[in-house]
Design a protein around this nucleic acid. Sequence first.
DNA 1: ACAGATTGCTTCGCTACGCTAAGCACCGTG
DNA 2: CACGGTGCTTAGCGTAGCGAAGCAATCTGT
Lengths: 153, 153
Amino acid sequence: MTPTTAAPDSDDRERSAELAVRVRLAAGRLQRRLRQEADDRYTPSQLSALTSIDHHGPLTLGELAGIERVQPPSITRIVNALEGAQLVRREVDANDRRVSLVSITAKGRRDLDRGRSQWSAFLAARIAALPDRDRAALADAIPVLEKLVEDAS
Amino acid sequence: MTPTTAAPDSDDRERSAELAVRVRLAAGRLQRRLRQEADDRYTPSQLSALTSIDHHGPLTLGELAGIERVQPPSITRIVNALEGAQLVRREVDANDRRVSLVSITAKGRRDLDRGRSQWSAFLAARIAALPDRDRAALADAIPVLEKLVEDAS
DNA sequence: ACAGATTGCTTCGCTACGCTAAGCACCGTG
DNA sequence: CACGGTGCTTAGCGTAGCGAAGCAATCTGT
């Protein structure tokens, strides 16, 4: 069905909708494709969380959940796994003993570098094989993708 | 081949690796963010598969699995769900009775349009709110993302 | 012509990774 | 010092992937 009313504004909305669909489909298929090359050492959500912990210093679990876009129970499980592998350390906050602060350990930082390069080796190889123009397009779009995930607006 | 000193080539690889990591993290977080706004009618993999079936005409299940980047057992389950909702039709191939061909039904096409706009409404709204420059960057990057998922080379 | 390999899909059982609801421990205030 | 609010955890559920194994149809070699 094509609405015959041709407002310039509706055209814009149309374009955004089309873009949204393609972004979603592409992200989904990329995710599934990458799963096939999975590094069996750590899971994607673990590496993602570990990266955030490394990057944003000591975090409360709630803050981490916010960054990872996940509910508290999920972050608990992820951090449990990371702690079990001694990649992060939990400490009780001195001022408020309800909150746990997680920070990365030396082992964690070591494994992160190693794990990350393995983790993205497949994708990195494909990106390296792209023509410069495509690589530039990708680089330009990443901040936009990150912005789309952010809170509020 | 390549000089061993700080070659521009190793620099390139570095950049690709960094890009790969960021693409992965962004895709993952986007995925989780979108899950929170989920439309509870159909699941993402169902809509993704339905879109492919719509777009690529009648497909064997194997072909569909290839497009969706999923193993045969997964596609079976997805198609079962879609067939149960009468969005697609399974037919036995006349020439080779082992293969099933799936095609979209009238109901499927109707629901696809409706479902898709709901499905991506959240993302579309955010994209619409972006400055033109960002939207353009996104549009340019989509074909690249799609290319990254494609087979071999 | 028909036994055995191959192919395409399905079934089964598993893991990962989200979620909500409910619970526990701790904090702050009346 | 009770009582509501907050931060994390536990329990239980659903979806979504996977590999291994199974079944039915097709192909192939003798």
